[in-house]
């Protein structure tokens, strides 16, 4: 048992690795701050465009969304990072992560927003337009707040996935949390830094996951949020 503890739960080694892991955590949070807002904005754009009357807009968009949801995000990332240089483009690791995960997460967020917008009856926007609100105002004040509320658990689940996705940045040598922890592992020849990294992911995501479960278990029709 103590051999296990020495390999996995060595506090002094965790302490030694702390500065590296702290920097890694900073990078992970930075990636989240890029990927999540970009994905949300892109997803909203996708959802709104998917309501466009023209098939010339909707069909290519539907194909793109399907492609970016079906291709594994790791494949997408490696293609952007290692494939695009053959076309003369050399994205930095952070740019590659931003581009690849923008394509992936905005496709997922887009589907969620689309379901949310679809859940709001036409009567709502008709009532708003009948009082003189413009289409954009109707969306911003009447339709979108209700749509977001209806799909909030899904948006949050997808956000958890996006946070986890950032660990793939380690593959393109981006020193985020997982990469830093793994580097500490190889420097100390001990698995404890990996455990520490795992514990940090858990600390960030577990409250979110709990919150999602609470939303999903609320009685049907209850739209109050707190």
């Amino acid at each position: 048992m103590s051999a296990f503890a020495a390999q996995f739960l060595d506090l002094s080694i965790m302490w030694q690795a702390a500065p590296l892991i702290r920097r890694g955590l900073g990078t992970t949070l930075l990636l989240c701050a890029i990927v999540i807002p970009l994905g949300l904005a892109g997803g909203l754009g996708v959802a709104l465009l998917s309501l466009a009357p023209s098939r010339l807009v909707r069909w290519p968009l539907a194909v793109a969304v399907d492609v970016f949801r079906a291709v594994p995000p790791l494949v997408l990332l490696i293609f952007v990072y290692a494939g695009l240089p053959f076309a003369g483009l050399r994205p930095s690791p952070i740019e590659a992560v931003a581009i690849a995960f923008f394509l992936n997460t905005s496709s997922y967020y887009g589907e969620i927003f689309r379901a949310g917008l679809g859940s709001i009856g036409r009567g709502q926007s008709e009532a708003a337009r009948s009082t003189g609100l413009t289409g954009a105002q109707t969306l911003a004040y009447v339709v979108l707040p209700q749509a977001v509320r209806n799909v909030l658990p899904d948006l949050m689940s997808n956000t958890v996935e996006a946070v986890k996705l950032t660990s793939l940045g380690s593959v393109v040598a981006l020193p985020e949390l997982l990469y830093s922890a793994d580097m500490a592992r190889s420097l100390t020849y001990n698995a404890s830094p990996l455990i520490l990294a795992g514990a940090i992911y858990l600390a960030i995501l577990w409250p979110l996951v709990r919150l999602i479960s609470r939303f999903e278990n609320r009685p049907a029709g209850d739209t109050a949020l707190g």
């Binding site: 009856g121 709502q124 009532a127 009948s130 009082t131 003189g132 105002q137 004040y141 009447v142 739209t223």
Partner: peptide, 25 residues
């Protein structure tokens, strides 16, 4: 205009429903 199915905004109070267009329009 008044509709058969009311079409009030469910996420706003009665006051919010009535004042939205006053503010934005």
């Amino acid at each position: 205009m008044v509709f058969q199915s009311f079409n009030l905004y469910p996420h706003m109070t009665a006051l919010g429903n009535v004042s939205l267009a006053l503010r934005k329009v």
